[in-house]
C-alpha cells in the first residue's frame, strides 16, 4: 500500500493525544475560578447564580479527539449558566461578568470576542495558548449562545445546542479510527495552507472541515490495512465537488459551499467566511483543488518517492518523503547485517 508508513509517521507527528499538563492546569484553574468568582460577580449585579448550577464541558477537537499540533494551543470549553434571557437581554454584559470573574490573575489576558470569552496566555510577548469560553444561557430548557463583542452594536442570545453538536460528532467519529485520522490530516492541510492568514473569517472553520469530512468519508482498506492516502483523496475530492463553481463574463471564478449545522441554530457554518469576502471561498476551493490534484498524482505515480513528493505539497515539511529507489547493487546490500 502506498505511503502507509510516511502517513503513519505524519499522523504521529501532528496528533495531540491529550491535553498537555500546562493546558490541564490552566483549564482547571479557569474552571475553579469560574465556579468560585462568577457567582460573586453575578451577585454584585443582582443576578443569583449557584456555583453548583454552572456546567462546564469540552467542545471542539479536544472533545472529539481530533486535535492537531499548532503553533498556539487552542481549546474550547463551554460554560453554561441558568439565566432568564428575557430579563437579561444583553449577552455582552453577562460575558463581561465572566471576563471580570477571570481577570484577577495577571498571567492571563481575558478578552471578549464575538462568540466567546477568550483567555490567552503569553510568554515573552508571544501568545502560546488560549482557551475559548463560549458562554451559554440555559433558559426554559433551551441553550442560547452569548454573541456580540464587548462594544459591538450587534449582539444576541443565539439558540444553540452544544451538547447535541458534541453527541452528533462523537457518534460519527468515535470508533472510526480512519475517519479520525482523515479529519486530522485534512486539518493539517488547512493549517499548512492558512498558517500565515491573519484576516478574520478567511480561514475555513474547523467545525466546517470536520463536518465536511464526516459527510464525505468512506472507509478505504485493503488486505494490508487502512489505505489512508486513498481515503484522504476521496474525501477531499468529494468536498471539492460540493462547491458550486461558476464563472463571470470575464472568466473569473466564483465558488460557494454551504454546510448547515445539524443542531440549533441550523446555520450555515461557512456563512461568515462567505459574507466577509467573495474571494475567501474561491481561495478555499483553489487550495482544495491543488490538494486533490496532488493526491491524485500521488495515487497515480508508481514510485513511493514520487508519490511522497506530491503528498508533501499537501501536508508540508512534516511529511517525510520516502527515499528514491536505490540501484540494484544497493538493493542487494540492504540484506546485510552484522552478527554481533
Amino acid at each position: 500500500m502506498k505511503l502507509k508508513k510516511p502517513l503513519a509517521d505524519l499522523y504521529n507527528e501532528i496528533r495531540i493525544q491529550e491535553e498537555s499538563e500546562p493546558l490541564r492546569e490552566k483549564r482547571e484553574f479557569l474552571q475553579n475560578d469560574i465556579t468560585k468568582y462568577l457567582p460573586e460577580e453575578m451577585q454584585s449585579h443582582d443576578i443569583d447564580l449557584n456555583a453548583s448550577d454552572i456546567r462546564i464541558f469540552d467542545q471542539g477537537s479536544y472533545k472529539y479527539h481530533t486535535t492537531i499540533k499548532t503553533s498556539v494551543i487552542d481549546r474550547d470549553v463551554a460554560v453554561v449558566i441558568p439565566l432568564d434571557i428575557s430579563e437579561h437581554t444583553d449577552p455582552r454584559k453577562i460575558k463581561k461578568y465572566l471576563k471580570n470573574a477571570l481577570s484577577h490573575v495577571s498571567t492571563r489576558t481575558v478578552n471578549i470576542k464575538e462568540p466567546c470569552v477568550n483567555v490567552a496566555y503569553y510568554e515573552d510577548g508571544e501568545e502560546w495558548m488560549h482557551i475559548d469560553l463560549p458562554l451559554y444561557a440555559e433558559y426554559q430548557g433551551n441553550l442560547y449562545l452569548a454573541r456580540g463583542r464587548e462594544f459591538s452594536d450587534t449582539y444576541s442570545w443565539e439558540p444553540a445546542d452544544p451538547d447535541g453538536l458534541n453527541d452528533d460528532l462523537c457518534s460519527q467519529i468515535n470508533g472510526n479510527d480512519q475517519l479520525r485520522r482523515v479529519i486530522r490530516f485534512i486539518k493539517k492541510w488547512k493549517y499548512e495552507k492558512y498558517k500565515n492568514s491573519t484576516l478574520s473569517h478567511e480561514i475555513p472553520p474547523s467545525i466546517g472541515i470536520t463536518y465536511l469530512v464526516c459527510d464525505h468519508f468512506l472507509k478505504v482498506s485493503t488486505d494490508e490495512g487502512d489505505d489512508d492516502l486513498t481515503a484522504i483523496y476521496q474525501v477531499m475530492s468529494n468536498i471539492k465537488n460540493c462547491f458550486t463553481v461558476s464563472y463571470d463574463i470575464y472568466g473569473n471564478i466564483k465558488a460557494d459551499i454551504t454546510r448547515c449545522l445539524t443542531v440549533k441554530p441550523y446555520s450555515d457554518i461557512f456563512k461568515k467566511m462567505k459574507d466577509s469576502s467573495d474571494t475567501y471561498c474561491v481561495t478555499f476551493y483553489n487550495r482544495l483543488s491543488d490538494a486533490v490534484k496532488n493526491l491524485r498524482d500521488a495515487i497515480n505515480v508508481e514510485s513511493e518517492h514520487d508519490a511522497g513528493v506530491y503528498v508533501k505539497n499537501v501536508f508540508g515539511d512534516d511529511f517525510i518523503v520516502p527515499p528514491k529507489n536505490v540501484s540494484s547493487a544497493s538493493t542487494f546490500s540492504k540484506k546485510e547485517h552484522g552478527f554481533g
Partner: peptide, 23 residues
C-alpha cells in the same frame, strides 16, 4: 555492515555516495 560494496561498480559507488550526501 549494511552494504556490500563489493557488488557495486566503481561508478555506482561514487553515484551512491554523492546521492546519499545530497539526500
Amino acid at each position: 555492515d549494511n552494504m556490500i560494496h563489493f557488488l557495486q561498480t566503481y561508478e555506482e559507488k561514487v553515484v551512491d555516495a554523492v546521492e546519499r550526501l545530497i539526500a
